[in-house]
Design a binder for these strands. Sequence first.
DNA 1: TGATAGAATTAGAATCATCAAACTTAGTTT
DNA 2: AAACTAAGTTTGATGATTCTAATTCTATCA
Lengths: 157, 157
Amino acid sequence: MNSRDVNNASKRNLTPTMEDYLEGIYNLSQEKRVVRVKDIAKKLRVKMPTVTSMLKTLSEKGMIDHEKYEDLELTGKGSDIGSQIDQRHQTLRRFLIDILQIDHDQADEDACKMEHAVSPATLERIVDFMEFVEHCPGSGNDWLALFNEYRNLGSPG
Amino acid sequence: MNSRDVNNASKRNLTPTMEDYLEGIYNLSQEKRVVRVKDIAKKLRVKMPTVTSMLKTLSEKGMIDHEKYEDLELTGKGSDIGSQIDQRHQTLRRFLIDILQIDHDQADEDACKMEHAVSPATLERIVDFMEFVEHCPGSGNDWLALFNEYRNLGSPG
DNA sequence: TGATAGAATTAGAATCATCAAACTTAGTTT
DNA sequence: AAACTAAGTTTGATGATTCTAATTCTATCA
């Protein structure tokens, strides 16, 4: 261990993968009384041992409370981050579906990757943008319907 | 090596990291006569040995031509993919800058991550969307300017 | 209570991307 | 040509994420 103190795993930032686990666990804990390793594995599309080892990592980072073979729970910090990532996901999903008119499955898939790529500044701007579009600027016409028409006809009127 | 033939490295799809290298090399080869390991390292923000080992991988995948200590060149395939990723980057960048009005540096940073996250369908829809906005629908007023105003005043007229 | 099925964990391995340190090569300078 | 410098490479290591196979635990059922 050298002088660059970048090495303390329990202090380093979360990787996108870790964020995904927190988001998944957050969602599961809202759906069910207890969160099971099996369910996390299913949601994240990995095998159970992978989950077990990630749980260890997340415990060390203070994101979950978990003792071998026992129940697991997000800590306050873990829950905050989980819900924050979920929030990003929902925002991007809405943008893709409502504005860009992407189909739901594709939107979910894209949102899942984009949630780690988009900066807070850009996400905020997307929120502003959706608000703006939904309040429909200039005249009373349905702006989104125009985009739809444009897409279907290939060219604007 | 078991029955799941997913293991043949030279056949597996490119990872996002490999795509980044191809994009970077593609850009460098447009700027300079010869592409140097040092420059790739600088552009990708990694050390030279990392580049060397990635060059080996990309050679095995048929993306570049490269012999030890000698010049390197993208193959047709490598060049196609490099330019394709660059294209994605440029599209996303334009969207972030022109539509969402994100500042250039931030836009570049975000585009760099988003280029691996966004599906072809969504990217195409973004292109449509920009086209639509730039052809300014309904009446002749400058729609983008309205969004600007909305952002600055906090609420629409 | 014992047997058993299913859930969770450990052990051990592989892949990917990265680095520092040490070494080699190529292209100048003198 | 010998020496030097900068570029490139090899070696060996680490961390992150994943897997399979083997093991351990828990809870239920007969």
